[in-house]
Simulated scan of single mutants.
Amino acid sequence: MNVLILGNSSDIHASHLKQALTQAGVTVDYLDTSLFPTQLRISWEPNNQVGYLKDKEHQWELKDIHSVFWRSFTGVGIPSLKDSQQNRIAFNDSMSLLRTMIKACPARWVNSWQAYEFHKEKPLQLCTVGQLGITIGQTIITNDPDQVIQFAQSHKKVISKPVYGGAHTKVLTDSQLNLKRLHLALSLSPVTLQEYIAGTNIRSYVIGNSIYSAEIRSESLDFRQDAEAELIPVELPEAMQQQCLAITKALYLEWTAIDWRQTPSGEYVFLEANPSPMFIHFEKQTGFPITKELVKLLIS
């Protein structure tokens, strides 16, 4: 059985899972797309749907790859070219073949390209989850200063975060509502604003049909910034567990970490579903068998 991990050994989660799979008797290697096209070779024959991957040490036929774990996607590593047009053509050609390989490979992807693409459109993700009948917080994504001010005035406390991701959540301050500053910032990029929801952070890991949840006690607005956050295992109500499975299916995920905010009245508000969450610290603190469940998912 051949299993690939999308990423490389510099990622602690990728190396941790590689070790676990190896101990389970699986042949596992890294698929580092940053080495393509300089060191990684990809071939694809559309007429008979045969494809190959080859690096300095290995060669895999796509049909022989059982599963791929999507840890991190680094795109392609195009050498720097003086001619910008040639550089653009080289990048587009390489990405086209790489995307074809990812989509055409019949292996089980955990998670798929489709899930990865969906995650990049976080506003659409929120909308999709809301259409399932799951509660989401009041949100606006905009680069219109007037809309920002109107939204801020409509809520007692507002948080801001990037539309795509890559930065932490922050409380919107009065200084940020200065018109001159707003016009400058929003002419560069839009922003996501959400009503602040008082309550408790809950994170639910979904692996296949298994669900593991914990309350996260932290003084930080964004608990990812708090190394001292306390993790306390909890059992979600059956209705919430069904919502976890519904979200996972709707977002084309095989596994995910879903972040919730539980209000003082007991209502669960959806915040986000991550298609490639970190899990080692969570597993150590809670004792949940996340690694074991991932190995099982990848070899099933």
Rank of each mutant, 00 (worst) to 15 (best):
L251V: 03
L231P: 09
E235M: 10
Q225G: 09
A257Y: 10
D226S: 00
Q262R: 11
E228T: 10
I207W: 01
M240H: 09
D222V: 03
C244N: 10
L253T: 11
E219M: 13
Q242Y: 08
L221Y: 13
A214M: 03
Q225D: 07
I216K: 00
Y212Q: 08
S204A: 13
I211Y: 05
S204H: 04
F223E: 00
L236N: 03
Y205V: 00
Q262H: 03
L251T: 12
E219V: 07
A246I: 12
E235K: 12
Y212R: 02
I216R: 00
Q241Y: 02
I247V: 09
Y252T: 15
P237T: 06
Y205P: 04
I207V: 15
Q262E: 07
R261M: 13
L251I: 06
L236Y: 06
K249T: 15
T256H: 11
S204G: 08
D226R: 02
E230M: 09
I211E: 05
P233E: 06
E238Y: 11
Q225N: 06
S220N: 14
I258C: 01
E215P: 04
L231M: 12
E215N: 09
A227P: 04
E235G: 07
E238Q: 14
S204D: 09
Y252N: 15
D222A: 08
L236I: 14
A227T: 09
I216P: 00
E228F: 14
C244V: 13
S204K: 01
D259W: 08
A246Y: 01
N209I: 15
V234F: 04
A214W: 01
S213D: 02
L236T: 04
I211G: 01
